[in-house]
Simulated assay, not measured.
Amino acid sequence: MLTRRHILVAAAAALAAPLAPRRIWAGTSLAFGGMRIDTLSDGHLVLPVDFTFGDLAGDEVAALLARHGMPADQMTPPCNVTLLRDGTNTVLFDVGSGPDFMPTAGKLAEALAALDLAPEDVTHVVFTHAHPDHIWGLLDEFDEPLFPAAEHAIGAVEHAYWTDPATVDTIGEARATFAIGAARRLEAVADSIRLLEDGEEVLPGLTARLTPGHTPGHMAFELRSDAGAAMVVGDAIGNHHIAFERPDWASPSDQDPPLAAATRVALMERLAAEGMPMIGYHLPGGGIGRVVKAGDAWRFEEME
């Protein structure tokens, strides 16, 4: 049976001193079989509207933003890091931005501490892809790997792309720092990294699924037991508005927009047909919900 709940957690230090200012972390939890999934907030990004909407007609963008209660001048997508615990393994899917990307993000360490977890408790770090808001949190303030006891895993195609010296010159000027930062971080964990192929079992009940387009080797991860299933989709479904209402739209936020659109449509169709819960990195409410068919498109429905 699938169960999902909202969690509201106070930092341990605040519990010890009730009158002290408290940092509250809101998130969501999903459990089935022996698996428990929590989403942890790494904060949020601040992006210009055209980063996602590109050349889409202004009146259509305005109407969509209004329908979803969003401001017209900027976007502030949340960053939901997925934590999986199965009684043996403690797995993080992506690691957030760290301190060097945006001041509104990079809060994962605080979120882990609120659950009484330390980086040393993490046994596996699994990357959907190597954009800054997903991988730059890999190193600490001394440029050492933040999760010293963990095995790190990333798609083989994704790893080859970001470690190719030619990428910095072909990715485009706006993303050149993405390539430099990803290569440096992947090099730092080169001795503990596992390269994944499409369909490979990462751990029992955890399977890698190639979902390219947002980046060349982007992967989603399917979690399955006799009691249910869910999918960590990363940025293959990157928001709760245009990705659902116009999933075939080529967005400039994707590195290969046509391929990303085709991947998104196929993923939506599968998730909706199977009723499989999903966890999206930039989706609201902690990111856990379902894809529901809505006419010729879909909508994101947070799970109750």
Rank of each mutant, 00 (worst) to 15 (best):
G280L: 04
L15G: 15
T128L: 07
A179F: 02
R270D: 12
V291A: 11
G205F: 08
A57W: 01
L195Q: 08
L267M: 12
A261E: 02
N239R: 01
W136C: 13
G205R: 04
A183D: 04
L40K: 09
L146D: 09
D198T: 13
V95F: 06
G213A: 12
H159R: 06
E274A: 12
W249F: 13
P252G: 02
E200N: 11
P212E: 13
P21H: 11
P247Y: 12
M231D: 07
L47E: 15
R224F: 03
T3P: 00
A166N: 05
A230F: 06
S192I: 02
D55M: 04
V202F: 10
G217P: 02
A294N: 09
D191Y: 06
P204Q: 07
G98M: 08
V202W: 09
F300D: 11
A220L: 07
M35V: 13
A174P: 00
A113S: 01
A17S: 13
A114T: 09
I288E: 00
A188Y: 05
L84I: 14
M102I: 08
I180F: 02
F93C: 11
M303G: 03
D143C: 01
L115T: 07
I135P: 01
E201V: 13
T128S: 15
V202Q: 13
L15T: 08
D191E: 15
A111I: 01
A12R: 14
D55H: 07
A105K: 09
A227S: 14
L2G: 00
M278L: 15
E304H: 02
A150M: 08
L139I: 09
A66R: 09
F300E: 12
L45D: 15
